[in-house]
Design a protein around this nucleic acid. Structure first.
Lengths: 144, 144
DNA sequence: GTATTCATACTCACCGAAAAACATCTATAT
DNA sequence: ATATAGATGTTTTTCGGTGAGTATGAATAC
């Protein structure tokens, strides 16, 4: 669903263009939450609902559930796209991901991520080798 | 499905012709990802979906899954063919594969690869011996 | 209570780049 | 020799990134 890597500038109003290929899947807007490693994770609302559902449906204690609820929902922000397919990044998330004037948008199948370009380069370098280990193992399994 | 070896020039717009024999299998476009040894791997979307599905269906931790998603999907780019059966190679992939003005397209059964012609010659030379070992062993069995 | 200012969201407009369409030429085969 | 298909080059048009302008609304000051 969401593929590839796109780089944009943030304008002085804090607006970020989303890749045109992505926009069709974001008709109902987008949900942003802070990701694990200093990036922003962005879900189309449908995926987000699925995620939230499977999450609240889990088997955890009441207390744990409250904590998880806080962590997941309290930090989430819902946004609409404007007429040009842009969103304006909430300042808190911008700080969190250390995004200043450049964003890299990275498609990762059913969601996508927004990165500071420097951090993304690091992450990419770290993960590059893995691609082929994965694919080869899959093709190995497929053949079996 | 994808057989043989074809050599083309890249025009000044970065467009690469795909072998006519391949085009029928690429009606829905093609997905490109960086290959292991400085080449570009190209999947027809159907194959890619199978690959992606078997991948995301694996049994890995959430964190690991995110990393793998990034490695696999972020580097993938989806492309349509133009009316002449060409695609325009993303600059990042061109750099990765060190493809400048000549491409060798190599069919490898259910996917195919794009190579710098020099690298391909090397690769071919390196693999040639293996081919003959295989063939000889087959002929050996046949004779028996 | 009114006025002013700041912030946010929506609309419009321009320019450059990418893609689609178009055209030409070469090579091969009949 | 002619016709067809495919490689390659050119033109045209569309799309998308970016900036500016306008409107709406909230917050503060007077």
């Amino acid at each position: 669903m969401f593929f590839g890597e796109y780089e944009y500038k943030i304008d002085e109003k804090g607006r970020v263009p989303l890749p045109p290929r992505f926009r069709a899947h974001l008709k109902d807007g987008v949900v942003l939450i802070p990701g694990i490693e200093k990036c922003i994770t962005a879900y189309p609302v449908a995926e987000w609902k699925k995620l939230a559902a499977s999450f609240t449906g889990g088997t955890v204690t009441r207390r744990k559930l409250r904590q998880l609820n806080r962590a997941l929902f309290a930090t989430a922000s819902y946004l609409n796209l404007d007429g040009q397919g842009r969103i304006s990044l909430p300042p808190l998330l911008r700080e969190y991901a250390e995004i200043v004037d450049e964003v890299v948008t990275v498609g990762t199948n059913n969601y996508f991520e927004l990165w500071n370009s420097i951090h993304w380069e690091e992450e990419k370098a770290a993960n590059q080798d893995q691609v082929w280990q994965i694919i080869e193992s899959l093709e190995g399994n497929e053949g079996a």
